[in-house]
Structure formats: C-alpha cells, structure tokens
Design a binder for these strands. Structure first.
Lengths: 214, 214
DNA sequence: ATGTTGAGTGAGTAATCACTCATTTTTGTG
DNA sequence: CACAAAAATGAGTGATTACTCACTCAACAT
C-alpha cells in the first residue's frame, strides 16, 4: 500500500522527470533517449542502467503516475473532499471536487497526456491504467454514491458508474475546452461556467414535461 | 462547401487509406513511410508525389476527416436526427443521436484516434480540428438548442456549449468505457445503460431538495 | 598503499528513418 | 505507331535511432 517510488535513487528520479518532460512534449515515439539523457544531465548509457528498454521508461512513468496520483491524489483527495466538505451539501461537494480535479489534472497533465495517448494504442498500458487508477477511483465513488443515495440526495436508479462517468465526462470536456481550445475561443467566466456545468450534472439540461416525471 | 476530396485520384486515396490504417495502428511517429507505401501497394517515392512531407499526410487525414465527418456526418446526421425525429420528443431525439454517434465514432475511430492523439501535442492540428469539425458542430447544436429552449424542452439558463459538452462528455466516456476498457470489465446491457446515461443527461443525477428548486 | 567494486560514461553499431532523383513505365495525342 | 509528357519507381543519402560495451574512476576494504 505504500509507494514503491521511495526506493528510487536520485539519478533514477532525474531520468524519470526528464523523460516525462520530453515525452510529454513530443510524444513517446518522437522522444529520443539521447534527448532524455541530455535533459536529465546524464550520459545516454546511464539511462539503460535504470531502464532496460525505452518502453520500460514508459512503464516507469505509468507506475509513477499510479502511485503518486492514484494513491495520494485520487483516493485521498476524493475522500477528503466528498466526505468532509460535501457530506451534507451535494452541490458544494461536487463543486469542490470539480475545482480540485481541474487543478489536479492541470498539475499532472504532462504525465497524464503520455498515459492517455499510449493507452489509446496499447492494451497492456490500458490494463495498468485500469488497475492502478480507474478501478480504485470507481470504488471510491461507488461508496460515496451509495451514501448519497441513502441520504436521498442522489438518484437510486442511476448507477454509480453512469453517474461518476457523467461527472468525469463533463469535467474532461470542460478541461479540454478551456485548456486545449481556450486560445481559439472566447471563454466565459470560469466560475459562472462551472456553476452551469454543475447544474447540468445535478439536474440535467432538459425541462421535465408535466406528465413525464421520470 | 463541397468536399474537395472528390478531386483525389485513386492512388492518392489508396495512400491515404493505408496511412490511416498504419498510423492508427502504431501512432504517427512510429508509422514509417515505407510501411505505408507497402500497405498501399505503391513505391515509397510515390507517396512523396502526393504528399510533400510525412506531416502532410497527417494534414491530409485531418482534411479528409473534416470533409467526410463534419460535412457528411456531423451536420447532415445531426440535423436529420434532431430535426426530423427529435423535434417533439427530446428523449427520443437524444437517444437517436447517441446511438447514431456511437456507431459513427466506431466507424471513424481509426481516423479519430490519429487526430485526437496529434491534437493533444500540436497546436496547429488542434486549430484545424477546431475549424473543420468542432466549430461547425457547435453551430448546429446551438441552433437545435435555441429551438428546444423556445419550445420549453431545454433549460434556457444552461448555455448551448455547456449542454452540448455534457452530452458529448457522457458519450465519449460511454464509448471509452465500452470499447477501450470493455474487455476488462463486466458490461451492463447496452440499451439499459444508454437509457440511464440519457436520464443523467436530461434530468441529472441529483434529487432536488424541496426548497432548492434550482 | 593496494585491490575490488560497480555506477557512470560516450564512442560505436546496425538498423531504420524521411526524403531525393536518375531512370523506367505508363499515358495521352496526332 | 511515334513521340512527348506525366507518373511511378526503388536504390541511394545523410541523419538519427535505440541500445551496447570496453573503459574510467571515485569510494570503500584490507
């Protein structure tokens, strides 16, 4: 349950950091080991003392992300926010989570971009991603969802997976829209837009017909 | 306004198809021009008659996707479904759109995967993606949203962009969950899950408090 | 002092890359 | 059929790639 990253030597950490920077900039295939070495301030041969192959570096990044993010941020962060601040007030809880997650995604975006990209192409990477991050996040949210349903704050008839995916889907597109396409479009006020997103998540975009309660 | 793809020679089309297949399989940087040529059944030199550089092939794929998808599918498809079948019944309209889009994403996934991946790394690719596909889709949805608001079926206080992004976000994660992580998880019945997704989109995941109508 | 160890090095290696161009093949025209 | 123009070819090019390995040298033990 503890992070196995701790047994990383200082040099290994420097190589990993450099690898994250370079690969996140150019993509895995376009990133050369020589540039990673230069950025890390070590000889190229040194890299292969710590990572047998280039693909092993990618695995190292994934594991690193899994440990740092999944353990420290996803689980701990979600639990703290949802259970402490968002226990009574669903709207406040969701808003906190969304803001928190936006900042988090921003912070780990270099790593995240690498992992997402490679997960699109390689099943083995996808499997690690699922085991290390997704499945655990689902567990946490399921617990929260169960409690909210019991409290009468969330709909019982919508599964936790569907509900959680809805939140995440809105969050992801919100992030993409703002951070990737931001320069190309006129952006609305951040908080105003976020409030709308939360409204959409919580109460939907449709006006219920009089006869059609569900 | 007509698709400039029509002036594509048969050989150019073959090269483009091969490029899509190979690049979608291994990623842009890892895909070699020699393999694309082999797959297309032409000499390597021939590729560079039609595309000045390798990056031009990528641009070609983008343009192709822009023409085929944006014109033919996004605009036509959305309009047809939303205006003919979904004009009166929002739920039926959204369900048709979602099912239709799922099939569409499935069909163009090879191309889409290339574009999404490269868009994450290159601003110029992102710009083309925005101009060719996103901005047009937004326009179409904005028109639909305006009409639905006038009819009293959609909430006025939620912007078209937020609403559309909510739908798309749900759709994207639904697709990813099923098609990318499908093999790793126990999948629910497709239609049952889709109905839940639509419920979440239309009416949200929260139960409104008695005093908190909004 | 001397010996042993192993982390660190960087020139070297074969393979592969995107791209070129002299040559050949195909096509269109009178 | 003859001829010119266009299209297609694939061996060749220099650059770059992931990875290797013979070597260096600081840090310790004896």
């Amino acid at each position: 349950m503890q992070a196995p990253d701790l047994k990383m030597s200082e040099k290994e950490k420097k190589i990993l950091d450099a690898a994250i920077a370079v690969i996140s900039e150019k993509g895995f295939s376009a990133a050369s080991t020589s540039e990673i070495a230069r950025q890390a301030g070590v000889a190229e041969g040194t890299i292969f003392r710590y990572f047998k192959t280039k693909k092993d570096i990618l695995r190292g990044i994934l594991i690193h992300l899994g440990n740092v993010i999944a353990e420290l941020l996803v689980v701990y962060g979600l639990k703290k926010i949802l259970y402490q601040d968002g226990r009574e007030d669903l709207r406040a809880g969701i808003k906190l989570v969304l803001k928190d997650r936006m900042a988090m995604i921003d912070a780990v975006f270099p790593m995240l971009r690498i992992v997402i990209t490679e997960a699109m192409y390689h099943e083995d990477i996808r499997q690690i991603l699922y085991d290390k991050i997704i499945s655990r996040s689902v567990e946490v949210f399921e617990e929260y969802h169960r409690e909210m349903v019991e409290k009468g704050l969330m709909k019982r008839e919508i599964d936790a997976v569907v509900a959680g995916r809805g939140i995440l889907g809105n969050l992801v597109l919100f992030f993409v829209y703002r951070n990737l396409f931001g320069p190309m479009i006129q952006l609305d006020d951040y908080d105003r837009e976020l409030d709308q997103v939360i409204d959409a998540i919580m109460y939907g975009i449709a006006i219920p017909a009089v006869g059609d309660k569900k």
